[in-house]
Structures are given as C-alpha cells and as structure tokens.
C-alpha cells in the first residue's frame, strides 16, 4: 500500500530547521569578520581572543565547581530515591514520586523565583553555594527518573540469589546492585552535569555578587558583547555537549547489546 509522503517531508524539514542555525553559528565562529553578514576568510582569531578573556576562565571555573558538586550529590540522592520508588509500593512512595516528578514540569522561572525568595527569607548569602543547592534540586529528579527506568528492566532474581548465598544488605548494595546499575547512574550523572553547566534561568535568580557562571557570562555577552566571541565559545560548548551525548549513547547501547545476547 502506498504510504503518504507528508511524514517524510516533515521530518526532513524539521531536521533542517533544527540544524541550520547551529551550522551557521559554527561556521561563523571561524569567520575573520566582526560582522555576521560578510565572510572575510577562515580565521581562528576569536578562539585565540577567547583564551585571553579572564572573565570567561573565571566563569568556567565557577561552572565546573557547581556542576561537579551537583552531579555527585544528585547522583547519590537520585539513585537512592529511584531505589525507594522501585522497591516499595506504598502511599509514601506515591507522595515521593509526585515530589520527584513535579520539579521536572515546573517552569524554570518559578523554581528560580521561589528559591530566591526562600534564600532571602532564611538569610543565606547568595553565591555558588545557593546555585549548587538550586541545581541539585532539579537534577535529583532527572537522575531518579533515568535510574528508575533502568531498574524497571532489572532482573531482581540476582538479588535473591545473593541473599540465598548469605550476602547482607550492604554487600548486595555495593557488590551486586551498584555495579549492575552503574551505566544508568552514569547516564543520569552526565545528564545532571549537562543540565547544570547549561542552566541559565534558575542560576540567574539565585546567583550573588561574583558568582558568575558560563551561561550568565554568555547572557551578558549576548546583551552587550561581541557576537563572534560568543560564536566561538558556543562552538566549544557544542563540541563538549556532543561528546557527552556520544558517551551516554554508548552507555545505553552496551546495555542493549547485552539484552539481545
């Protein structure tokens, strides 16, 4: 039977729509001209300029401090939460699930303003620490969801076998559960890391004097700075993101081949 061609054409159009702006941006990061309208030959001058901008290095340092601490804490909290959600089927877990799920759908700006008001109300100094608290609050949910998905196709007879062989809970968690869940936890952690280094809106609300992260820096460059420099910085960040996605894809693919085997 002849199928409609509309789905194919839509898919092609959407992919062009998705990637054209990104390609134009990447190509222009190598443009010698200051202006986006004219091409004056290939050049790496914007990348070289980037390395001499002290503010960017400072912002990068802050971003990485926040991203690493957020990733570690949300991986621990998210994994434990996913385990609780999967293992127990009680009213408490239904409330727990709602609590984990809601931050995923609440718009950024509401999370940002509510955390700002909270920090102002209890009198915490705004800065990297408050950014870390805010980022962890939404990353826990993402990690929990990724790990929960992995637990759902997890073979629990392995745990029963370990129990029968006399392993205690601690041994089971460390020697059986954790190694088997490691790819899922790592994928969740990478998601948390990417979300943390990319977050602008929530960070903008809870940041304090001196605590500039990379997205905050990019935002002020978009508002006041020079476009070619942002093109170069964006291209570097895009490459980093592609590498992370590739790793995650690899982590999940390994699993799939195992299942088929």
């Amino acid at each position: 039977m002849k199928r409609s061609r509309i789905p194919l054409y839509t898919t092609i159009a959407v992919l062009v729509f998705f990637y054209l702006p990104i390609f134009v941006l990447i190509i222009h990061s190598f443009n010698a001209s200051r202006f986006s309208g004219s091409w004056e030959g290939f050049s790496l001058r914007w990348y070289i300029r980037l390395f001499t901008e002290r503010e960017i290095w400072y912002a990068l340092r802050n971003t990485l401090i926040v991203a690493f601490s957020t990733t570690v804490v949300s991986m621990v909290l998210g994994t434990i939460a996913a385990f609780a959600l999967h293992r127990f089927n009680t009213r408490l877990q239904r409330v727990h699930y709602t609590l984990i799920y809601t931050p995923l759908v609440v718009p950024d700006i509401l999370m940002g303003i509510s955390l700002l008001l909270f920090f102002v109300a209890i009198g915490v100094q705004l800065g990297l620490f408050t950014i870390f608290l805010a980022h962890t609050s939404f990353c826990v949910s993402y990690v929990a969801m990724v790990v929960l998905a992995r637990l759902q196709d997890f073979d629990f007879s392995v745990i029963e076998a370990a129990q029968d062989l006399g392993a205690n809970w601690w041994t089971i968690a460390w020697r059986v559960l954790l190694p088997l869940l490691a790819p899922g936890i790592a994928a969740g952690g990478l998601l948390a890391f990417t979300l943390s280094i990319d977050d602008f809106v929530i960070t903008f609300f809870v940041t304090g004097p001196g605590a500039t992260t990379l997205p905050i820096q990019i935002y002020s460059m978009i508002k006041h700075g020079s476009p070619p420099l942002i093109n170069a910085l964006s291209t570097i960040l895009l490459v980093v993101t592609f590498l992370i996605i590739w790793t995650v894809q690899h982590l999940t693919e390994d699993e799939r081949t195992h299942e088929n085997a």
Binding site: P21, I22, V24, D198, I222, S234
Partner: peptide
C-alpha cells in the same frame, strides 16, 4: 544543547 546558544543562533 544549551538553550541560550540555540536562542543566540
């Protein structure tokens, strides 16, 4: 990929 970068593009 970063929201901010895609808007900037």
């Amino acid at each position: 990929t970063s929201f901010l970068i895609r808007i900037f593009a």
